[in-house]
């Protein structure tokens, strides 16, 4: 009764980060080790509930003896590793990564972006004025592009997608972190309604043949929105309140409770503003949901706001 299954002993690994010795569990990442030391490492594509995609490269660190930099989020510690997290080389790549992102993507609703840009002295504007949105972006073919004149900086901008009453998708804000695809796919939801389509700079998140969400496999669990780090994916409720200028996280109370539907017992975090539920999330660190919900838990709770009560 209630006995623990395995208590496998794990080895410890000694390494050095910025000259400081540190000892962490085998299997930890450099990011874990940095956090243990209180070193603030920028991350964008990293998600607590997901396997590291290690694609944004804003967390890169320098390893002594290595030809290239390594992503802290996914690189496992090794004995004797010597890590630099703030060398000129690291700062250069982080700065450039932020410039490249910021010059091609609208980061206005990415909470962490402004701080990072400032910290690394990124100057996205030196890559040129941003190019306007391209309605044809979703249909671009791999291996083909128009030769640029270099007078504007190409961007991911494309028209906002509103094709249902629950989600708003503004891929002009998408940094292609893969988190929505990963959470919709094998790592959690297993619905696979979206994938990365196209290639290179034209890569984008897409349904099959750019089908509107109601025609796609989407089941509106909202787990993609929960992991989106940039606000490219947003609940309609938040989108509309922002448009009205009413959205105010400072005035929102967050209360954890249990979903009123089936018997799984999912933890809901209700974001309440003016006695209305404006958003529903789930704690990343609870074993039942790991941050995920289904459509009922995510949206079906609006009945308490409904008229007729």
């Amino acid at each position: 009764m209630g006995e623990m299954q395995h208590l496998t002993a794990r080895r410890m690994v000694d390494l050095e980060i910025d000259g400081e010795p540190v000892r962490v569990l085998e299997g930890s990442t450099i990011l874990d080790a940095c956090r243990g030391l209180g070193i603030d490492t920028p991350t964008l594509c990293y998600g607590e509930t997901l396997r590291p995609a290690n694609v944004c490269r804003v967390c890169v660190v320098e390893l002594e003896g290595a030809r290239v930099l390594a992503p802290a989020c996914s690189r496992k510690v090794e004995p004797g590793m010597k890590v630099r997290t703030d060398s000129e080389r690291v700062r250069h790549s982080r700065k450039l990564v932020l410039e490249l992102l910021s010059s091609s993507v609208d980061l206005s609703t990415t909470p962490a972006a402004a701080g990072y840009l400032e910290r690394y002295g990124a100057e996205p504007e030196r890559h040129g004025p941003p190019a306007p949105a391209d309605p044809g972006r979703d249909r671009r073919r791999a291996g083909h592009h128009e030769e640029p004149d270099g007078q504007t900086a190409a961007t991911a901008a494309s028209p906002i997608k509103i094709d249902n009453e629950l989600y708003v998708r503004d891929y002009s804000k998408c940094i292609l972190c893969y988190k929505c695809v990963d959470v919709c796919g094998e790592q959690h939801q297993n619905t696979f309604a979206i994938a990365v389509a196209g290639r290179g700079f034209d890569a984008r998140i897409s349904t099959e043949y750019v089908a509107p969400l109601p025609e796609s496999a989407c089941v509106y669990c909202g787990n993609c929105i929960a992991v989106c780090p940039t606000g490219a994916l947003m609940f309609t409720s938040e989108h509309e309140l922002r448009a009205e200028g009413v959205w105010d996280e400072a005035r929102q109370e967050r209360t954890d409770t249990i979903c009123p539907y089936c018997g799984v017992g999912c933890n809901l975090t209700l974001h309440v503003q003016d006695n209305r539920i404006v958003k529903v999330t789930s704690p990343d660190d609870h074993d039942i949901t790991r941050g995920n919900l289904c459509v009922k838990g995510r949206f079906g709770v609006q009945h308490v706001n409904a008229r007729g009560r």
């Binding site: 009453e165 089941v219 539907y261 009922k296 079906g300």
Partner: peptide
């Protein structure tokens, strides 16, 4: 079904494409 619940007292009140 996924998006609904019993007699719809609670689940009938949100706008789901499902």
């Amino acid at each position: 079904r996924l998006e609904s619940y019993n007699t719809g007292v609670q689940s009938g009140r949100f706008r789901s494409p499902l």
